[in-house]
Design a protein around this nucleic acid. Structure first.
Lengths: 343, 343
DNA sequence: CCTGGCACTCTGCCTTCCTGAGTGCCAGAA
DNA sequence: TTCTGGCACTCAGGAAGGCAGAGTGCCAGG
């Protein structure tokens, strides 16, 4: 078995044509139809031989003896890696994206608009992760006395995210102590990356009078807890209705997909595996999660600087328009990054 | 046509039995099966006569000449209004609900847990509206100077909701002015219902020195804007995967439902029509929104006191277990209310 | 007013048949 | 070698026909 015999150019062209046609028509594509729709310069019989070779190598597959071919996961993989160019968005599309995202009033709104936009552009299911706490820095820490022994702690990050927690203090908290603590917190933690903060504040209680130390310790504990709560990472979804578009073959598998989409944990892990740079495509079985074995995930990191603070992506059938989807994902990520940097 | 002839007790019993069986089996129910499974004390032939009468009145309907009967929307309506008791949760169920909701750390988490819980209990799609701004009161307003001319406004409500906005001030803002403004804002607005706040603060700029007034006005403007932003009402969804359970007949209609669920506006209007008190059931065509014409919505208001601050509910096929669903919805609403009151 | 009996209707399912798309292979041409 | 036209073969999927079973409406008798 010549399993690693390199494929010549024409075979690659045939594979490309098969992927393109199958994505378009959703039906197995035969040799005759291929020759008609693409000017390959050879006869159907020749194409058939190439197809046999491609099948031998596992790039395509026949549902039934007398049917056309459809690409396998491996075929899509080769297509994405070597046969397709990311399709850039057109100028009007870019303007539209820009304009749509510019209208956002706060972080929630930005994320909400992004996810809807992505779902519309790709006509698939879109997923956007909120800018992660661990990558961002402290913009401000605020303490608000709500009752004699009750303080509200508000943490604001450079990505615009706001987390708040109630703190039940061991005793009454004086306004001056609170002001002092607030000032020190901001002086030391301001601008620092969240994971670095605890180390910087460790010795803070020592700076206060003994009676106030329990309070300071309690507040710090809550703050650290908030910082550490990685699992608070949130995700927004849109476009689930698009799943129904993949009619014929998909309804059987729509349920596990919907289930996966409901599991924030699954989605977070999915996005978590995306490397920071570059558009990533994970095809079919390449996804660890079983329910997504018949889908592909196109994802990318986005961030306010050149640094990625979170991920976003699209989930659709393995039979998807990869160049278009990748283009859309990349463009949207870029613009969200810009918006975040501006705000 | 004796269209308003009152139905005697046995006919009602037959209707009740039909609804129960159909909900259980998902198949049209015939006279023979009915008599076997319910002790009606009469023969199939008699039941057939009753069925004919019920059909005449529009409570049930035959898909085909030689098939059993299924309830119509009108039939379900009668069932819900007169033939069914809300099924209370069992003690273990109540404990589980209580326990599950008690673990929540903040409002987001409470809502998230509620919606998941409801989806699991009813095995349908659950919807929970965040406590609405307009019904709640101001717990605290905080102003934080982030830069010389940049202030962050944080609004905290009694329901635990936190809204923040950036304010770009016309000039540099002194810390004393800010403290003064903060104190006055809280003194006047604290504990007040959100819609009443603007009127109470109208004359506030007059209390400040002329040079500071533009700043005060700007901050107030942003605050009012935040208060007025009704459309910021948010909704959380869970259990969409349950839609696929309604296999045979439903997949055709699953798409419009998914689309409806993506439209926050539709959901908000849906919940908005729910009266404050009591569990409401809207069946099939009774729903204004076309995509939900083959679904029923069971909803109820919940709140921290005896007052409803938001709504929650369940969306499922008209063929649903009404008593059970109503019981679950009512119980969950009650417990969320308690949790909110405690926090 | 209820019941058993009976003739009737129709869906769902199974089987059979047939067409058409698509294939693999082979012998001959470039 | 590599491509091409020809040919026999396979098989999914739709159409047509037939059958069984569930359910009905109606009627005459208890």
């Amino acid at each position: 078995m010549l399993s690693e015999r390199p494929l010549d150019d024409r075979k690659l062209a045939v594979l490309r044509a098969i992927v393109q046609d199958y994505v378009g028509t959703e039906e197995p594509v035969g040799s005759k139809a291929l020759v008609e729709r693409h000017s390959l310069g050879v006869s159907p019989a020749t194409v058939r031989n190439d197809m046999a070779a491609l099948e031998e190598e596992g790039y395509i597959h026949q549902p039934h003896t007398s049917a056309g071919r459809i690409p396998t996961d491996k075929g899509y993989r080769l297509f994405v890696d070597r046969l397709a160019e990311v399709k850039p968005m057109s100028a009007p599309e870019r303007r539209a994206i820009r304009h749509f995202l510019d209208g956002a009033v706060d972080l929630d709104d930005t994320v909400a608009r992004t996810v809807r936009l992505l779902a519309q552009l790709t006509r698939q299911v879109a997923v956007v992760q909120y800018p992660s706490l661990s990558r961002s820095t402290v913009r401000h820490v605020e303490l608000v006395a709500l009752a004699p022994a009750k303080v509200m702690l508000v943490l604001i990050t450079n990505t615009g995210r706001v987390e708040q927690r109630m703190v039940d203090c061991p005793g009454t908290v004086g306004e001056t102590v609170l002001a002092d603590l607030r000032a020190r917190l901001n002086a030391r933690a301001g601008g620092q990356r969240l994971p670095d903060v605890p180390a910087l504040l460790e010795d803070l209680p020592a700076a206060f009078e003994a009676p106030d130390r329990p309070t300071v310790t309690t507040v710090l504990a809550t703050l650290f807890e908030t910082l550490a709560e990685q699992n608070e990472e949130r995700i927004m979804l849109a476009g689930t209705a698009n799943l129904t578009r993949f009619g014929h073959d998909f309804p059987l598998t729509i349920q596990p997909v919907l289930e996966a989409l409901e599991e924030q944990v699954v989605l977070l892990r999915l996005l978590g595996e995306t490397p920071d740079a570059g558009v990533t495509v994970r095809i079919g079985r390449e996804n660890d999660y079983e329910g997504l074995n018949s889908t592909s995930v196109v994802s990318v990191g986005y961030g306010s600087g050149d640094e990625s603070v979170a991920k976003l992506g699209v989930i659709g059938p393995t039979r998807m328009d990869y160049p278009g989807t990748m283009g859309a994902v990349r463009a949207v990520a870029r613009y969200v990054g810009q918006i975040l940097a501006e705000s």
